[in-house]
Amino acid sequence: MPSETPQAEVGPTGCPHRSGPHSAKGSLEKGSPEDKEAKEPLWIRPDAPSRCTWQLGRPASESPHHHTAPAKSPKILPDILKKIGDTPMVRINKIGKKFGLKCELLAKCEFFNAGGSVKDRISLRMIEDAERDGTLKPGDTIIEPTSGNTGIGLALAAAVRGYRCIIVMPEKMSSEKVDVLRALGAEIVRTPTNARFDSPESHVGVAWRLKNEIPNSHILDQYRNASNPLAHYDTTADEILQQCDGKLDMLVASVGTGGTITGIARKLKEKCPGCRIIGVDPEGSILAEPEELNQTEQTTYEVEGIGYDFIPTVLDRTVVDKWFKSNDEEAFTFARMLIAQEGLLCGGSAGSTVAVAVKAAQELQEGQRCVVILPDSVRNYMTKFLSDRWMLQKGFLKEEDLTEKKPWWWHLRVQELGLSAPLTVLPTITCGHTIEILREKGFDQAPVVDEAGVILGMVTLGNMLSSLLAGKVQPSDQVGKVIYKQFKQIRLTDTLGRLSHILEMDHFALVV
């Protein structure tokens, strides 16, 4: 994948999101292997301009796509893939009243899908469409860049269908997702969380590099694949309309690839034109409109599966009536509230959605109805927002919020430890010299600072030695090549209790 991002070429006709291997024109390309080798690009942008032909009021008969309808489940399912879809609609009884809503608040519980998330729908649909058009064949390999849930859905379907599955996901995604993927037989590649989507090191860039190296491999490409919004247009939206008897006044959905909100909203605009569509985008993402909503100094966020630093091709923002931004604290607070007060075992993005819903639905009156999409299960986040310690460490809970008995030293300040200034190293000294210094002084790690004293990161003896043994660096290389740029900081005025929580999850903390 090139470091400079080429513009994806656009073909003359058809839909841009065809499933299957992508040609340089962004659509299915038939021909000899030699032709494909000559024409197939190194990668295709996940934010390529959409060429979708959908228009409100256009006859369904003019759609270029294969459409399906929700099917009634048999008493005995032939395999677990038949437990994807037909998820329950559940009334939220307490939270709406707590925040003064007059309307009825309903939750579409997508964590009841077989793999635990709304992404099971698009995973199965992308595979079925690729099999139907002859792209996927027995023994082929599926590769997908994902925040985890699409990966789980694909790995689940691949396990049943017999495909090899490789999932490329950023490091910030939970260990629970990784464990589930491994249990399903998927191979996992992790990428830096802070890598831009168009960087060769991003999950998108690495996935395309693997595709170019592995024979008979395919990126189904949830960011561009029409099967993504079509899955929701054909099934999720129809289920909502049936469950609500066609009567709903507002739908609120958090947005990642945009397939969920695009597919549902398009069908609702056709069948229930008075329904307002509300999009939820986390602070630090750029999906919301108008652009002024996205202006923030924050560039990272903890909530998973929603928000991006690019506009995915499948996201149709014209069908969203209003956007709201959400933050991590309210997302996790509301997710825990949904679990504790409503018994809905949902993930953090569901918290984002409901946090926005109780604001947006203030305009609705008694007798009206708001539906929220709860995308995934708490299963993926047992060591994250479900953990009091994690919430404390991230600053989303305060010590006084917890009532468990603490040891005698818990409320003492870090400054009472009488710490001395640490050994520091410059980023320009060599790895070999740094190892000598650390061994001589008896230290395992040291902060790396520039000549102005600005902290650049941390270097550890173990990481340097393993990097040297693996051949990633040489003793003569500058130590700046092996620094940890993500590390926890703590102030002298913070409590030892807070430091204790940090050290339970990290090997060190830097006192500043």
Rank of each mutant, 00 (worst) to 15 (best):
H203C: 04
P70Y: 04
N228W: 00
L248Y: 02
P273R: 08
M126K: 06
T236G: 07
A24C: 12
S3K: 10
E29Q: 14
I80T: 10
I95L: 06
H65S: 04
L42V: 05
I80C: 09
S3P: 04
H66Q: 12
D120S: 07
K97Y: 12
K102V: 05
E110Y: 01
M173H: 07
E110D: 07
F99D: 05
G148A: 07
D79M: 06
R190G: 04
D120M: 07
K30I: 05
G246P: 09
C244L: 04
Q55T: 10
K211A: 11
V168T: 04
I240F: 07
G185K: 06
R125G: 08
K267N: 11
R164F: 05
S19I: 09
E171A: 08
I143V: 03
A186L: 00
G151E: 01
A8M: 06
V189W: 08
R266H: 08
I122N: 08
A159M: 02
T5E: 10
H67V: 14
A8Y: 10
T87I: 02
M89T: 08
G85P: 01
Q222Y: 00
L101K: 04
E34N: 03
D35Q: 10
V255F: 03
V168S: 02
Q242G: 15
P192T: 08
T257H: 01
P12A: 06
E4Q: 14
N149G: 07
T53G: 09
E62N: 14
R164E: 08
T135L: 14
A48Y: 09
P200D: 09
S123V: 02
A183V: 03
A226V: 09
H66D: 12
C275V: 13
M169E: 01
P74C: 08
L124S: 12
Y233P: 00
P59L: 15
I44A: 13
S3E: 10
K39I: 06
G139E: 01
N113F: 00
P229N: 01
C165T: 05
I143R: 01
P16H: 08
I219H: 04
K269W: 03
A195D: 02
S19M: 09
T146L: 05
L154S: 02
H17P: 08
F99W: 14
S63C: 13
S123A: 12
S23Q: 11
P41V: 12
Q7H: 12
A8S: 05
L268E: 01
T5K: 10
P74S: 12
R164S: 14
P170G: 04
M173Y: 08
A24I: 10
R182V: 05
V252E: 09
E131K: 14
L230H: 04
K39A: 13
R91C: 02
L156D: 01
S199P: 02
R224G: 07
A38W: 03
L251C: 09
E104T: 04
M173W: 00
C109D: 03
V255I: 04
K75P: 09
T146N: 05
A183H: 08
V118G: 03
S3Q: 10
A60R: 11
N93D: 10
P192L: 03
K25T: 08
P49M: 07
E37L: 13
V90P: 01
I264S: 05
T191A: 02
S63G: 03
K271T: 15
R224N: 09
E40V: 07
R45E: 11
K108A: 01
N212Y: 04
S3W: 04
I84E: 08
V178E: 05
V180M: 08
G258P: 01
T141F: 13
L124G: 07
R51N: 09
P145M: 00
S175I: 15
P12H: 11
R276D: 04
S174P: 01
R125Q: 08
E131P: 04
A69K: 10
T235A: 13
P12S: 12
A69M: 09
H17M: 05
S202Q: 07
R18F: 08
Q242A: 04
S217N: 07
T260H: 15
H218K: 05
T262P: 02
V252L: 14
P59F: 03
N228E: 00
R121Y: 01
L241R: 08
E171R: 05
T141C: 15
G115E: 08
I127M: 07
L248C: 09
T87C: 03
W54K: 06
S27T: 15
L136V: 08
A195K: 07
H203G: 05
G259I: 02
E104C: 12
L241I: 04
A183D: 04
D129R: 04
K177V: 02
M173N: 04
L156E: 01
S123N: 09
L101P: 00
P70H: 10
E270H: 02
V10D: 03
H22I: 04
R276A: 15
L56P: 10
D79Y: 08
P200E: 08
G31T: 10
H67P: 04
T13M: 09
L268I: 10
G139R: 14
S217L: 01
S23P: 11
L28A: 10
K267V: 08
A24W: 05
S63P: 07
D35R: 07
N212K: 12
I143K: 02
E239P: 00
P64K: 08
A107K: 02
K108R: 03
A186Y: 00
D86C: 07
C103K: 01
S50M: 03
K25P: 11
L101W: 00
F111N: 04
I261Q: 00
G263K: 02
E201F: 08
Y233I: 01
C52T: 01
G14R: 08
V160E: 09
N93H: 07
S19D: 09
E201H: 10
W43N: 08
P74Q: 09
R276C: 09
L156P: 01
S202W: 00
V252H: 09
K39F: 06
T87A: 14
R276H: 11
G246W: 01
G116S: 13
S227T: 11
A107Y: 02
V90S: 08
T235K: 10
E9N: 13
K137C: 04
T235S: 14
C165M: 04
K72H: 10
L241A: 09
K267T: 08
E176M: 06
G274M: 12
L230F: 11
I44R: 15
A158S: 07
D238M: 10
L124P: 10
P215L: 03
A48E: 06
A265D: 02
R182A: 05
D198A: 08
Y223P: 06
K36A: 10
G274K: 11
L136G: 05
P215V: 05
E34A: 05
K137V: 04
H65E: 04
H17Q: 10
P229M: 01
I44P: 11
R196E: 04
L230K: 07
A69S: 03
C275Q: 07
Q243N: 09
S254N: 11
T191Y: 02
P74A: 13
V180E: 05
T191I: 02
E34T: 10
V180P: 03
N212S: 14
I167Y: 08
M126L: 08
E110K: 04
A114L: 06
E171Q: 10
H65V: 03
K119D: 02
R161D: 03
C275T: 04
N228S: 01
P215K: 08
Y163H: 02
K177A: 00
P70C: 11
P6M: 10
R182I: 07
P78W: 06
R125S: 12
G148V: 06
P138V: 08
G205P: 07
R18W: 14
I152F: 05
Q55S: 15
H203A: 09
L101A: 02
C103Q: 01
G85F: 04
G31N: 12
P215G: 04
P41H: 11
G263Y: 00
K25F: 08
R164G: 05
I264D: 06
R266P: 03
K137E: 09
E40A: 10
I76Q: 04
L136Y: 07
K119L: 02
S175N: 12
D245R: 02
S217P: 06
G115Q: 08
P78Y: 01
D79G: 10
L220P: 03
W208I: 08
I44D: 11
A186H: 00
T13N: 11
L220K: 04
V118M: 14
H22P: 03
S61N: 05
C103E: 01
L42Q: 11
K97C: 05
R161C: 09
G20I: 12
R45C: 03
K271R: 14
G31R: 12
L106G: 09
G256N: 00
A69W: 05
C52N: 00
T235P: 03
K72M: 05
P16Q: 07
C109L: 05
F111Q: 00
I127K: 07
A207N: 00
G85C: 06
A38M: 08
I214P: 04
C244V: 13
P49I: 08
L251M: 11
N225G: 00
S147R: 02
T236F: 04
G151K: 01
D120H: 06
V178W: 05
S174T: 03
S202A: 08
S147M: 02
K247V: 02
K72G: 09
N93P: 09
K83W: 08
K102D: 05
T235G: 13
F111Y: 09
E270L: 11
K94N: 13
